[in-house]
Design a protein around this nucleic acid. Structure first.
Lengths: 338, 338
DNA sequence: CTGAAAGCGCTAACAG
DNA sequence: CTGTTAGCGCTTTCAG
């Protein structure tokens, strides 16, 4: 079934059928009604492939994500999907497992599919080699692209980012405000840009409040794995006094941390104050109500989609970078109760 | 940049270029090398739209899911994506929020895009109207389609399903084996097919063990919402003795239930035995180690993809329906310790 | 208001 | 081993 058959059955030309499908007007009421009726009867659905090829553009966007099972990304994804569907756009997802090779490959596939645009949550680490490769791929991509979460310098793309430095600062300050001075931060891997920015915020707060920083209090766990983070935390704190203030660097690390504290019978508000990046709904449901800094992932997704939409519709607008203001949600876990 | 330009630059015809792109052979080594070099230099990437239109088939499959933030589906999705990427297929996702209208719309869009096939996790409830509509949509879809999780009778589709009746039976039996006879099941909405099957398994076990079923022990909560389930549970159990045995009907209900027990200081293994459908990783990490029945969602995703792949490659193989055998994982929460 | 026809970029049958 | 050419199904310009 195709447009030609419909045209024949209606005794009109394909052009006319095309006009009514695309609501272009300039069609007599009667003919339009006749065509609509035949389309309905035949269950005819236009071929998007052909339309896209003809129009030289597709109605699909691509989204590249490190891990579709991580609740943070999951929320971003939901935001993107909602907005995309409101705008009749389809979404192809690529999961990279935080692997740069897969990420670059996904980008190439997006190019190959001639998608309308792309959203990228890069897994780029502090690696010059990967950075160069990514930049090169991005350059040849030649399509509207929005960066989410991971800022990459010297690249002319819009993006919506979290202000990790500020977030780190806020959490640290929340602890300092509660008389803490011995504060450990459990952040992501050493080569992770986000992990390092969070530490910078932490350090800035220490400087502003004239407190000395102890290097042993900066612990590099693993953003991508509860299990690995758990091992690192356990190893680091064995046979050691645990600092009274703890900052967990992301959702996975928080869970690892809560688990470790449970095991060692370390109580929040009594033995330790725990604050964290990312607001994990389940933890709240389970009564582990932590003071957190939240980045509103779903809103980030929607925001990123809007940026892409604007960029698609007007390639010449100036580059726009939004830094989402992290929201400090105080739930009491930053205190030690007497 | 297109195949014609590449051909011109190489002084060959488009056919030859096409041959080397698609590794069809029958090209002299030298010419092949020359073409490959030019492609590389020009960063030429073939237009998948055109290829697909020409070949009358696309390299994209569609996946329709009720909720991309639900950990169960998230695992299914990951399984699908892994397998798809291994087979160089792209995946468009549609989120339905368990809304049949959105589901049917997603199916129509899949048709419009002329995708290679589709995987459907339907949100169909016990509604004749919706069922008819879905069947009609599916009939006109005319492409390989695999059902996941939700069996729909009288429909000629392959599928991978959970054996919810058996799963319900296993959990109930685990409690009965531990001297429980007063057992409540917190299942999904009354019109949910899965919810009802789980209850059937529950009832079957009661019959087999000659125990009387109390209607008040079958509680219809909400598969799709922790919050709603929590409210229902709270309301139902207020001013009542809580049965010693509890079966939570899915991951969301389990969390609501654990929350409620925490609040009322009801202790598992002491006041109550709690067993559940779905294995939630986070709960285990947090030390809430429940006896569960698991359906291996990631494997289900991979299995479903394989089925789709087979169906795409051979439309005439007989219909294949896999019922994943639910795995009972005993972790001790089915007991009351003295 | 309508139709004819050129093209979108690629594949594949056919001819050589 | 290589080239010519007819589509794939649709949009869009141009002419009427």
């Amino acid at each position: 079934m195709n447009i030609k058959k419909v045209a024949e059955l209606c005794n009109v030309s394909v052009a006319t059928v095309s006009r009514v499908i695309n609501k272009k007007g300039n069609v007599k009421k009667e003919t339009e009604e006749k065509i609509l009726k035949v389309i309905e009867e035949l269950n005819y659905i236009p071929n998007a492939l052909a339309r896209n090829l003809s129009k030289q553009e597709s109605d699909v966007i691509g989204v590249v994500v490190p891990d579709v099972t991580n609740v943070f990304y999951t929320e971003v994804i939901k935001g993107i999907m909602e907005s995309a569907s409101e705008n009749n756009l389809h979404v192809i997802f690529y999961n990279t497992d935080s692997d740069m090779e897969k990420e670059i490959n996904a980008l190439k596939m997006i190019k190959e599919q001639r998608l309308k645009g792309a959203l990228l949550i890069s897994a780029l680490k502090k690696s010059n080699k990967d950075k160069k490769l990514l930049k090169k791929t991005l350059e040849t991509l030649d399509m509207p692209l929005i960066l989410i979460n991971k800022y990459i310098d010297n690249l002319p793309y819009d993006g919506v980012f979290t202000d990790d430095i500020m977030a780190g600062y806020l959490l640290t300050e929340a602890l300092i405000d509660n008389k803490h001075s011995n504060i450990a931060i459990l952040t992501g891997a050493k080569n992770s840009i986000v992990a390092n920015n969070r530490v910078i915020g932490y350090k800035n707060a220490f400087k502003d409040y004239n407190i000395d920083i102890k290097n042993e209090n900066i612990i590099y766990a693993d953003f991508n794995s509860i299990e690995n983070s758990y091992k690192i935390i356990k190893k680091h704190f064995s046979n050691k006094d645990i600092p009274k203030g703890i900052i967990a660097g992301n959702n996975n690390i928080t869970i690892a941390c809560v688990r470790y504290f449970n095991e060692r019978k370390i109580k929040i508000n009594k033995d330790v104050s725990l604050v964290a990046f990312d607001d994990i709904e389940i933890l709240n449901w389970l009564g582990v109500e932590l003071t957190v800094v939240s980045q509103n992932p779903k809103e980030m997704g929607k925001e990123a989609f809007n940026m892409l939409f604007n960029r698609i519709n007007n390639k010449s607008i100036p580059i726009n970078r939004i830094h989402v203001v992290p929201e400090l949600i105080l739930r009491g876990s930053e205190k030690i109760l007497k």
